[in-house]
Structures are given as C-alpha cells and as structure tokens.
Design a protein around this nucleic acid. Sequence first.
DNA 1: TGACTATATGCAAGCAAATACATATCGACT
DNA 2: AGTCGATATGTATTTGCTTGCATATAGTCA
Lengths: 125, 125
Amino acid sequence: MAGPKGSKYYDVFLKFNVWLENTGGESILGNGKFELIEGIDQLGSLKAAADKLGISYRKAWGMIRDAEEKLGFCLTEKHRGGQHGGNSVLTEEGKELIEAYKELLIEFDEAIYQITKKFFNKVNK
Amino acid sequence: MAGPKGSKYYDVFLKFNVWLENTGGESILGNGKFELIEGIDQLGSLKAAADKLGISYRKAWGMIRDAEEKLGFCLTEKHRGGQHGGNSVLTEEGKELIEAYKELLIEFDEAIYQITKKFFNKVNK
DNA sequence: TGACTATATGCAAGCAAATACATATCGACT
DNA sequence: AGTCGATATGTATTTGCTTGCATATAGTCA
C-alpha cells in the first residue's frame, strides 16, 4: 500500500524488476524467462511451462534459446521422442540459477520494504 | 562486476529498475520519465530535456501528459509564449518526487550491492 | 512399425508501440 | 504589429515484437 486514504500517492505502488545483462547491454534473462525456467522445473516440459504462462510454444522456445546462447551454457536438457513426445529438465546450472534468483527476490523484497516505506512517507504529505 | 575471470557469469551483470504503478497495473512513471523530469528541473524546458535524452519533443510531451494524467496532479508548470517560446518548471510535487526518487535510487544501490555479491557467489562456482 | 506428442525451426502475418511529420497556439520583446 | 521558439496535439508511418502456421525430427510404447 502506498499511504493513508486520501494521500497523494494512495493506490500508487512502487515496483521493481531485476535482470541479468551482458557487457553489451543486452538483456540475458529477466522475470519472464525466470518464470519460464521455473515452470520447466515444476512441469517437466517447455510446452507445459509455456501454456502455464499463456505464451506460445514458439516464443518460449525462442526465449530459452536466446538465454542459453547469451550465457554460453545450457540451462535445460531437452529430450525429443517417446510416447509423450519428449520433455525438458533443468541442468545443474539451471537449477542453481533459479534457486539463487528466488533467494535474491526474497532479499529484494525485504530490502525494498523499508525503502518503499520511506519513499512514500516523504512524498505523501 | 560479476565474478572472477573465467567464472561462469563473468561479464554478466545484475541490473534493476524501479517504477510507480497504479492499481490497474499500468506504469505511471519509471526511469525514463524520472530522467525527463530531472532534465526539466535542470534545464527549464521540456524541449531541452527531450534533446538531452535524445528523444523527440513529441514523445517527451506524451510522457509527461501520461504521468500527470495517471497521477491526477501536475508535476510541471508550463508556460507558452514569450521571446523564448515558453518554458516548463517543476511544481512542488514534482520537485518532491524527483528528490525522493533520487534518494530511493541511492538506497537501492546500497541494498543491491550486498544482494548482488551474494547472488554471484552462489552461482559462480 | 505405426501412432502420439514435445522438441526444433523457418517464415508469413498481425499488432501495438515508437517515431516522424505536420500544424496550431501563445505571449514577451522589438 | 511582427518575430521567435517552446508548448500542444492529431495523424501517418515505420518498426520491432508476437503470434500463427507449417513442417520436420525424434523415440517410446502398443
């Protein structure tokens, strides 16, 4: 919440985002890709993860390829064929990454709480 | 920096962004608009601020209108006419906002430093 | 060995956002 | 009264992103 009822910034919220970038300033992966990777971890396939996020398989596949290309190593291990068509699982690096990212988000949330409060106190008079 | 030479995430950087949102999930103002408002404060006109940021006047004008519309109050006081064509200055609210935002960014930077370090330690082995 | 389904990937098409273009208004100063 | 330059705003155009479509590949299980 952003302040008491009637205050200037009532129902205005402070939001943040975190992402990885390379030296060229290109985004490697941000929130969307993290959610996708997390979905793969939970659901066992890229298709299922894409469906869950409501994006096309085509797009999801491109997101993963892009991230892995820019990182220089794979986050997922893909298998084609089989009765169920195939599946995807996270590599060790992939698991470590989403694990670290989740912890990062928690710490961010904690940090931002105090900062946000201070911001709205200052601005809401 | 993201880790020692040769480590997995060498030359990968963690970046963040902060912005204001309304209850509808619409972005009210983020980094670009803050820079624009700061430019108006420093340079005394929307045109000069737009030029400084390398964006068109048309776009800059739209950014300000959009932010003020969504906030429900004005951040700038505009004047047309005169030998110099006119000028824009920040309202009290506008000044308070960029002041608070600047302080917010400093605190964010401090907070992110520790979090970032921890993140790359975890992920760079 | 044929069916099933997810991975893999190019290409066309559709859409929304950014940018460019064009034009009007305003008022202090000369 | 005329000039000048910034504010003000609609419309057109471009562009980049998404999605959709189409098609190939793979391998396990019945």
